[in-house]
């Protein structure tokens, strides 16, 4: 139980190493070991989507992965999203979109929505409202009724297309 494994991974373009118990979740590793607390844990069952991150470019639930499974992986969390903006922009257009349209209230689910949106707009730069809603079903929000979140994704899509 107490054997520890050495792991290393690249998170937000920085290389990290760690010595972890095999049962430690990736979400807990990011939060408690690396101090990247922007990734939130809302259910530990993969339902709410608050802990969504990018693992090797794909969205995954970091609560359903063990840290040891991410050994050698490249990860992007909410803290690394701004760096994906065009150089000179302090925030990524998706972040700007959520601010512009007020696509958040309490902010707890917001990082997960941003990561989902990041992957989505790369795949589908001109989504319809229906397509946006469909993709966002994997993330739960209890505050906004999704109204302004859908608008935020539309805002960001438009801004990204204009680049």
């Amino acid at each position: 139980m107490t054997t520890h494994c050495a792991i290393e991974m690249t998170v937000n373009d920085k290389r990290y190493t760690g010595l972890v118990e095999p049962r430690l979740s990736l979400a807990d590793f990011l939060r408690d070991h690396l101090g990247l607390t922007g990734t939130h844990v809302g259910c530990e069952q993969g339902i709410c989507g608050s802990c969504t991150i990018l693992l090797n470019g794909e969205t995954v639930r970091s609560c359903l992965l063990f840290a040891v499974q991410a050994h050698g992986a490249t990860i992007v969390t909410i803290e690394g999203l701004a760096a994906k903006a065009k150089s000179g922009d302090r925030l990524h257009p998706i972040q700007q979109g959520f601010l512009e349209t007020v696509g958040f209230q309490c902010g707890f689910c917001t990082p997960g929505f941003l990561m989902t949106t990041y992957e989505f707009l790369q795949e589908n730069p001109s989504p319809s409202e229906e397509e946006i809603r469909e993709r966002l079903t994997g993330n739960l929000c209890r505050c906004t009724g999704y109204q302004n979140i859908v608008a935020a994704v539309q805002w960001a899509a438009e801004r990204l297309r204009a680049r």
């Binding site: 939060r31 990247l36 607390t37 922007g38 990734t39 939130h40 844990v41 969390t77 909410i78 803290e79 999203l81 701004a82 925030l91 972040q95 959520f98 601010l99 512009e100 007020v102 958040f104 902010g107 707890f108 917001t110 990082p111 941003l114």
Partner: peptide
């Protein structure tokens, strides 16, 4: 007016009890 001081929510810098 759009909310002030809310940037933290889109950058992962909000501070909740678990943080």
């Amino acid at each position: 007016i759009k909310p002030y001081k809310s940037k933290r929510f889109v950058t992962g810098d909000g501070t909740y009890v678990s943080d």
